[in-house]
Design a protein around this nucleic acid. Structure first.
Lengths: 232, 232
DNA sequence: AGCGACAAAATGTTCAATCATTAAATATTA
DNA sequence: TAATATTTAATGATTGAACATTTTGTCGCT
């Protein structure tokens, strides 16, 4: 007998979701464009419920948002890192990954991004990182310090001009780590952090990628050690 | 006048989705457990349409799958890397990131994972990586070679025993890169690859993390250079 | 010009019914 | 008896119609 491939019956809403997804991703539907639900109902021949399920999927994937009321509708979005962030967050929660996994990942990303930043930083990047570092020096209470510190790390990531690494870093980065360890209450820790990150920043400004990488790595390793984040 | 905070009206399906999501993530609903749609309709007091939209969201997030027919239902899943993969894939398509971004990211991940593998590889890991490397040596046609090569890289990633890095690597790794460049048609390229990866594997087996890292980095840089993947 | 009432247009929600698919139980037949 | 066909039951998939809510536009009055 001839080979028979498994026959897949696609569900209606799924087929519609894929059509719309492709049109959004290839630019046939441009970001900001409003899609009328009932119009899609007519064109697709599906019921409203099915069309709504298709849009629910797209919304969960971060491809559209919804505005109610007159002039409302499904609005096509420019994909940003937010949805990636949610997925990674779910993944981490779902795996019940220990803190050491995140700390270790940070140890991989941070130096790499510092190195890239040294190669690619623009004048604006330098201004932004410097301003944030200055804010770090001015910060008196731990809360403000932590927020400024996160901002500085993200600025370094942006200065690397690699959207993929930056997006991932934004998720697993200090933003996930810092709230869990609560450190920085100690003034000496803050002073050491300011000094270490100042050195990293100098290397980035000087355009010395290997140095920036080494300094960032040393800084992160010290941070992880101080908080006992890496087991082995 | 007293301060009035913005009143948010949560949509019904969204509230339900969050309830179910939390129960799945915290283990109240265990993986494999079947959830009956009509039962949730009763308990939640929502209509079927709303309940279905909630489940559609969870399914898109990879938290449940659906089985139709008798004894069917919504089945809670153990979160794996698949959904993360889809998100990253969407992100990359949405950003229209050039190939160089992926190649550069690979250059960050691969050496880090090789280093971790050298520290953590178990006997099973070593057996698996060695078997896959042997398959690489036996592969005659390019297609088989590429598939075996991807498998080897993923085995190295698993041997690093960091689920987060492994999951990300699985997405942006050779699996995304190789199909786009189509290399390996040349026999010399295959031979060089086998030799380079053999050296990496030796270092991993020897437990020499810095050496494994250096060798993997050299290998990936050479690969990217050969295909002109990194611009600057 | 500005305020207010109303209308219009869109998504959100509900309800009831039916269709389609699957698995189990039962009947049929070689 | 064992394989096969049929029926039954459970469950998601789909539909259609109505009503609710939210937002925006419009008209009219002062």
């Amino acid at each position: 007998m001839a080979e028979i491939a498994r026959v897949e019956t696609r569900k209606g809403f799924e087929a519609l979701a894929e059509q719309l997804r492709n049109q959004i991703l290839d630019g046939t539907i441009t970001p900001g464009q409003v899609i009328n639900e009932r119009e899609i109902v007519e064109k697709s021949g599906l019921s409203r419920g099915s069309v709504r399920e298709a849009f629910r999927e797209l919304e969960t994937q971060g491809l559209v948002s919804t505005r109610r009321g007159r002039n409302g509708g499904r609005v096509a979005l420019q994909l940003d890192g937010d949805i990636l962030r949610r997925s990674l967050d779910l993944f981490i929660r779902g795996q019940q990954a220990p803190l050491s996994v995140l700390a270790e990942s940070l140890q991989v990303f941070a130096p790499a991004l510092a190195g890239l930043a040294a190669l690619r930083r623009t004048a604006e990047d330098i201004a932004e990182m410097s301003e944030l570092h200055a804010r770090l020096e001015r910060a008196t209470d731990p809360g403000r310090f932590v927020r400024a510190n996160i901002q500085w790390h993200l600025a370094v990531a942006r200065a690397g001009h690699n959207p993929l690494l930056a997006a991932i870093y934004q998720v697993i980065g200090p933003d996930l780590l810092t709230p869990r360890v609560g450190g920085f209450a100690d003034r000496d820790v803050r002073t050491a952090t300011i000094r270490a990150e100042g050195l990293v920043l100098d290397a980035i400004i000087a355009g010395d990628a290997p140095l920036a990488r080494r300094r960032m790595e040393k800084h992160i390793v010290a941070y992880n050690d101080r908080h006992g984040l890496i087991a082995d």
